[in-house]
Amino acid sequence: MNHNIDAVIALSAVLFGLGVLGVLTRKNAITIFMSIELMLNSVNLSLVAFSRLHNDITGQMLVIFVMAIAAAEVAVGLAIVISIFRNRQTADVTEINLLRW
């Protein structure tokens, strides 16, 4: 089973890259949060793979924590997006530009 670790790590790196790309290029705040979720979940994938590689359970333990934290982060993030949407009728980050330099 251990032979495919490279492929799993590569997949996780690609997913992470896609997430980073999404954060940098997307304009809608909610899509940005989805991209951040993608980043965190790609990390989960690699953590599970490494955990298997080292035959060590702590990696999988960390995965549970990452999931919980990701959920909390999205909850707070969406709450903030909702309040900004109420005040300005937009969730487009390019239009959220009262603060500059």
Binding site: A29, V43, I80, L99
Partner: peptide, 23 residues
Amino acid sequence: NESGVKYIIYGSFSSGLMIYGIS
């Protein structure tokens, strides 16, 4: 509102980087 949304996007992005580094 605006500072909150900017803060959380930067913040969760860099915590994503950090957890990838940790992995």
